[in-house]
């Protein structure tokens, strides 16, 4: 058995410095498209390429509703023009504006949050990225987050997937079985908008159609650090993604940056 201890020591510490510092390793995030100033015509042609309607041509610039984006890269590759692509992963935001969300968890939860993960019909990418939070690179235990298999012990319901019809009942039952106070984190563009799957006869297309969502983490899939950002946001330890998903907000942000 000693060989394992030695190997463990030889491996050294792999854990990211995030949230203390930003993580800069290659390949931790796919990045994302952001609002871009473009001539009318180019903006029009790019928005026509987007399969989910995430791109809108709104005068002088192309706005991005990142909640809808499925990372197909069509707006970034193989065209004469492309959208601006921003690295990073702090994408989560409070869904509080929709009046149903109930804000951050109380401070007592800061160092001990138990999370039930429910896959409500995704492709497995979001689920796998959620799982990575447990691996030595992200090791989210150090920040006081724990997975639990039981809704009775859960403070947070983390939902991935486009709300498949046959997952509605199990998901609702899990939510009902959780003690208050409880929060819902929706992870991935499918859980936010249905992504490429919904809405259809088989998928309702958004978790918020069934449950009150508190934090949304867009991305297809959002990388582990984006999900971690969502959890830190929920416990009041990180600020919301400042580039709001609302196209009007984006326009305002764009202007203030320019001036």
């Amino acid at each position: 058995m000693s060989q394992w201890v030695i190997q463990g020591l030889r491996t050294g510490i792999k854990t990211t410095a995030y949230p203390r510092e930003q993580e800069s390793a290659a390949g931790v995030s796919p990045g994302r498209p952001i609002a871009t100033e473009l001539p009318e015509q180019d903006a029009e042609s790019l928005s026509a390429r987007c399969p989910t309607g995430a791109l809108k041509n709104s005068r002088e610039h192309l706005s991005v509703d990142f909640r809808r984006c499925i990372h197909c890269f069509r707006c970034a590759r193989e065209n004469s023009v492309s959208v601006r692509w921003e690295p990073g992963y702090e994408w989560a935001f409070m869904a509080g504006n929709n009046a149903r969300g109930s804000g951050c968890l109380p401070r007592t939860f800061e160092r001990s949050v138990h999370i039930l993960v429910v896959d409500a019909g995704d492709c497995g990418a979001c689920l796998n990225e959620v799982k990575q939070l447990n691996n030595p690179y992200y090791n989210f235990h150090r920040l006081g987050f724990f997975f639990t298999p039981s809704p009775r012990h859960a403070d947070v319901l983390l939902v991935v997937g486009a709300l498949a019809e046959q997952m509605r009942k199990p998901l609702q039952m899990a939510y009902d079985a959780m003690p208050a106070p409880k929060r819902v984190v929706a992870v991935g563009s499918c859980a936010l908008t249905g992504g490429i799957f919904g809405p259809s006869f088989a998928c309702a297309g958004a978790v918020s159609k069934l449950l009150p969502v508190d934090v949304e983490v867009p991305g297809n899939p959002p990388p582990p650090l984006a999900i971690l950002h969502g959890l830190l946001l929920l416990t009041g330890r990180k600020a919301s993604s400042f580039l709001d998903h609302d196209p009007a907000e984006q326009a305002r942000f764009k202007l203030s940056k320019a001036s």
């Binding site: 491996t11 290659a26 990372h71 197909c72 069509r74 691996n135 690179y137 899939p221």
Partner: peptide, 23 residues
């Protein structure tokens, strides 16, 4: 093994832009 999986995800990510080779 988890470390190796994440390493491979990062190799995919830096080579193709996407950790699961989408797009």
């Amino acid at each position: 093994a988890a470390i190796l999986q994440e390493d491979l995800l990062r190799i995919c990510g830096s080579l193709s832009g996407h950790r699961y080779l989408f797009g």
